[in-house]
Design a protein around this nucleic acid. Structure first.
Lengths: 196, 196
DNA sequence: AGAATGTTTCAGTACCTACTGAAAGTTGGA
DNA sequence: TCCAACTTTCAGTAGGTACTGAAACATTCT
C-alpha cells in the first residue's frame, strides 16, 4: 500500500540524470511531508505544496505547482491561498511578469512559530474558554448546600481544574515561542537542552 | 451549523436538576474536546469517549459509553480499544462482575507524555528517516564534479539540512517530556519562564 | 453440555472532505 | 474600450473515513 510511494511522477520533460535524481529525492520528501500533515490535521495537498515550495527553495508559479504535483488549478489556488494565510508562504511579483510566484519561508523555526501561534488561537483558546464555562456552570449548579458536596460534582470539578492548569501552562509555553521566532526558539532550545 | 452543539442528548432517565446541570456541563466539555481532537488528527468519537471518561472521573462500561454518546456498540468497542492502545485509558475488572469497565488516567501531564511519545514514534521518526534518505540520494547524485555545484542541488541540500536540524531538536525535546511526565514538563515551564 | 452475558469483528453504508473543471472575475496593456 | 493573461470561485462529484448492526466469538455459570 505504501509501495507505490515512489511512483508519483517526478516531473515532465527531458532531464539530465542529476535532475532526475534531484526530482526523485524531492518527491520522496514531499510525499512524506504530506503524509505527516494528514495525521496532524493538515490536508495532504496543502502539506505537499508547502513541502514542494520549501524543498525547491525558489519561487514557483501556480502552473509549476499544478504540473509537479498533478493537481487541478482550483485546488492549487485554494491551497496556496491558505498557505499564505498561515503566513508560511509568501506571494511574490516578479518585475515585468504578470503571473504571481510563491515561495516558502526558509526558516523552519519561524514557520513553526507561525503555525503554533495560529493553532493556539484557533484550537487551544476555545477549549480553555469552554473549560471555564463548564466550571461556571458547575458553580451555579452547586449553589445548594448538599449539591456542592455530591461526589460526582466534586470529581468533575477536579478534572476540569486539572485540564485547565495543563492548557494554561501549555498556552504559556506556546506564547514564549510565538513572537520570539528564530532567536526565541533557538534560545529556548538551548536553555532546555542545557537544563536536562 | 454549530448552533445545535448543545442539543446532544445529555443522558437518559429521571434526574435531579443538579444531575442535569452536571451532565450538561460535561457534554459541553466532551463536545469541544471532540472538535479539537479532529483538528489534531484524532477522530471525533475517540476524543469524545476519552473526554467522557476523563470528565466523569469514574469507570464506565461499554454500555454507559454507548448510551451517553449515542454511538453503536461496534464503534464504542473499537474506540475504547484504541484508547487503551494509546495507554491513556485503562481496562478495569470489577470483582464479581462480568463486564469490563474503562477509566481514563487522571493526570493530564502523564496522558500528554504518552501521546507525545507515541506520535513521535509514529510520525516524526519516519520523517527524520526520510530526510536522511533524501540527503543520501543527493550525495550519490552529485558525485560528479559539476553536479555537486548545481545550485538547485545545493539549495535542496540546505533545505533538507534545515529541516533535519529542526526535527532532531524537536525530537530531543519530546524525549525530555517522555518519561519525565509531570515533573519534566513543569520543570520545562519553570526554566522557560525564568529565562525570558 | 447449553444458556447467559458480554466482546470483537467486519461487510455494507452514510457522511464528509477534498478535488476537479469550467465559468466568472480581475488586472494590465494596446 | 476591448483583449489577453492570469486568478478565484463554486457546483458537482470522487474518494475516503468513520459508523452501524448483526453475526461470530469468548467466557463463565448452571
Amino acid at each position: 500500500m505504501t509501495t507505490d510511494t515512489l511512483a508519483r511522477p517526478a516531473a515532465a520533460a527531458a532531464k539530465t540524470p542529476v535532475e532526475q535524481q534531484l526530482a526523485t529525492a524531492q518527491d520522496l520528501f514531499i510525499r512524506r511531508w504530506g503524509e505527516m500533515g494528514q495525521t496532524w490535521g493538515i490536508n495532504r495537498t496543502m502539506a505537499e505544496i508547502h513541502a514542494l515550495l520549501y524543498i525547491t527553495a525558489r519561487p514557483l508559479c501556480t502552473d509549476d505547482v499544478m504540473d509537479r504535483l498533478n493537481i487541478s488549478r482550483g485546488n492549487a489556488s485554494m491551497s496556496l491561498r491558505a498557505l499564505c494565510d498561515w503566513g508560511i508562504v509568501r506571494r511574490l511579483h516578479k518585475r515585468g511578469e504578470r503571473r504571481e510566484y510563491f515561495e516558502s519561508l526558509g526558516d523552519v523555526w519561524e514557520m513553526f512559530s507561525l503555525i503554533a501561534a495560529e493553532r493556539k488561537r484557533r484550537e487551544m483558546d476555545p477549549v480553555l474558554e469552554t473549560i471555564r464555562q463548564c466550571q461556571q456552570m458547575l458553580d451555579e449548579a452547586s449553589l445548594g448546600k448538599a449539591a456542592a458536596k455530591r461526589e460526582d460534582v466534586q470529581a468533575t470539578r477536579q478534572r476540569l481544574a486539572g485540564m485547565e492548569e495543563f492548557m494554561a501552562v501549555t498556552n504559556k509555553i506556546f506564547q514564549q515561542f510565538i513572537g520570539n521566532a528564530r532567536s526565541g526558539l533557538t534560545k529556548v532550545v538551548k536553555v532546555l537542552l542545557k537544563a536536562f
